[in-house]
Design a binder for these strands. Structure first.
Length: 278
DNA sequence: CGGCCAACCTGTGCGC
DNA sequence: TGCGCACAGGTTGGCC
């Protein structure tokens, strides 16, 4: 479930294994994910050293010693696992598309059933101007995201608040789950016009968005520890969502008494409580 | 340009 | 047990 918190958790899980590591073997078993995998994928990575892993929105950026920047996006179903040399599966699992082996024998495997993810090359000088990166809005956990910015974004939209918050140009990293959760916490109906949320609504949403994401990262981080030991999996977390996926259940807002409903907006499910979200 | 839908692809779960 | 359908965390090309 890769929205910002999951991507950040994967990044944090990979850092100790990859930062400072030299790549001994780089293998791509499919020719394309959402886009073709670079033809020089193996050649360019073999012998290269990974200096650091960063994240922009839902993209993981792998900066290498020679200036190469690897762009990784998990799409809908992308998973990453880490395996020590002695715990490596004998044969690649279904949908294990890409694999890196570091000089110390650690294997990192990218698995993606639907192949909506992507792996592309850029470089550290031009990454900010990359077409996939350059138009992305402010990081929600950074200072560039604030009430003024959100207000400005909401005021020039006729769409719903749900659609507005899903728009990566307005704010980075939110996906279907965390937009539902943030709107539930803020008591804002997902069908409300974005414009009408400017002002008070935006003032409430900014800290709520920050909290929701921060809590999810914290939950992922604590789960991650066990998961890496157990199976090497990154990206699978048990989050306790209050609205998402809870159609028909009682709303957990104190004294609300309402029921979580599901509607479809722009082809995507929205979960909300019509009693406490207006 | 803003807004919306279809499409990309595979897997899963449910009703019959 | 099988079949068909709805639906799934993201993104974007193309059409009003």
């Amino acid at each position: 479930m890769p929205e910002l918190p999951e991507v950040e958790t994967v990044r944090r899980g990979l850092s100790p294994a990859l930062e400072g590591a030299t790549i001994a073997v780089a293998t791509a078993r499919v020719s394309k994910l959402r886009f073709p995998i670079p033809e020089d994928f193996s050649a360019r990575l073999t012998g290269n050293r990974i200096e650091r892993l960063t994240r922009r929105s839902k993209y993981i950026l792998m900066e290498c010693a020679d200036g190469l920047m690897v762009i990784l996006h998990l799409g809908m179903s992308g998973r990453v696992t880490i395996h020590k040399a002695d715990g490596l599966p004998v044969a690649p699992a279904k949908h294990d598309h890409v694999e890196l082996k570091t000089a110390d024998g650690t294997h990192v495997i990218y698995n993606d059933a639907r192949r909506f993810g992507l792996i592309l090359f850029s470089d550290r000088e031009t990454i900010a101007d990359h077409p996939l990166i350059r138009d992305i809005g402010p990081e929600p956990l950074g200072n560039e995201f604030n009430v003024d910015v959100l207000n400005a974004g909401l005021m020039r939209r006729k769409s719903s608040i749900k659609a507005a918050l899903l728009d990566q140009k307005l704010v980075a990293g939110l996906g279907n789950i965390y937009v539902c959760e943030a709107l539930w916490r803020a008591g804002i109906h997902p069908s409300r016009q974005a414009l009408s949320v400017a002002g008070d609504g935006a003032a409430r949403l900014v800290p709520i968005i920050r909290d929701v994401l921060t809590e999810a990262i914290a939950a992922g981080g604590s789960t991650l520890k066990d998961y890496v030991q157990a199976s090497g999996e990154l990206g699978y977390f048990q989050h306790s969502f209050k609205a998402y996926g809870r159609e028909g259940e009682a709303c957990s807002t104190p004294d609300c008494g309402g029921t979580i409903e599901r509607i479809v907006q722009q082809g995507r499910s929205s979960f909300f409580c019509s009693t406490c979200q207006e």
